[in-house]
Design a protein around this nucleic acid. Structure first.
Lengths: 102, 102
DNA sequence: TCATGATATAATCATATAACTATATAGTTA
DNA sequence: TAACTATATAGTTATATGATTATATCATGA
């Protein structure tokens, strides 16, 4: 399965970057947010409702996910829509999901 | 890329499980350990040397990775060898690595 | 411009955990 | 058994960060 490509030729800080990527996906609330927006972009209040968390908390996580390049932010009037920007994040979730499901 | 399989049919706690999986890969030191053992099993002291961390710290991370099912532990006399048990972990690293490399 | 609604930010608190030091356990060899 | 080597664990500290509350910003419509 592995060709070892991941494990050669490191640039400084690259490992921290990769770890940070995984850390982004290491929070259940953020996975819930991904769930909420992966089919189509949604406005913040809808995501708040879908996740059952508070508006402030969801907003914070949305900012983090957008800053990480996983979500894209589109403003439409006073609404803000978040949607998937980086499909790899979704793919990773699916891979792990299939794996833990045995 | 996504067929949405990841996002339907949740069992309780499954999301936490998946997040925990990602969190395991969300630490640079653990990625360094994966680097050290992904080609072949290595004994603890070699991994300590390869990572440049302390023996206690490496031992702790090895325990966590083994408990998560990512590494396997084989005892040979007084030596303990750790090696990859879950190749998906390596594959995930490679995917993300290729991705952040642009 | 005032009121309302949508989103973001700041401040605080609580918790998880990475790293370190010291020590314990287990296996090996003299 | 004693000494040595390899690994694991306990206890502590420091730090990162998730959740909450309160407030700020910004857009819209009366």
């Amino acid at each position: 399965m592995s060709n070892g490509k991941f494990f050669r030729g490191w640039r400084a800080g690259e490992l921290e970057l990769i770890a940070g990527r995984f850390r982004m996906l290491g929070e259940p609330m953020r996975l819930r947010i991904l769930q909420a927006v992966c089919q189509q972009s949604r406005m913040v209040n809808d995501i708040v409702a879908a996740t059952g968390s508070t508006q402030a908390n969801v907003s914070k996580h949305l900012s983090l996910l957008a800053a990480a390049g996983i979500l894209e932010r589109k403003k439409d009037g006073q609404r803000v829509y978040y949607g998937i920007k980086d499909q790899l994040a979704v793919k990773l979730c699916e891979l792990v999901r299939a794996h833990v499901a045995e």
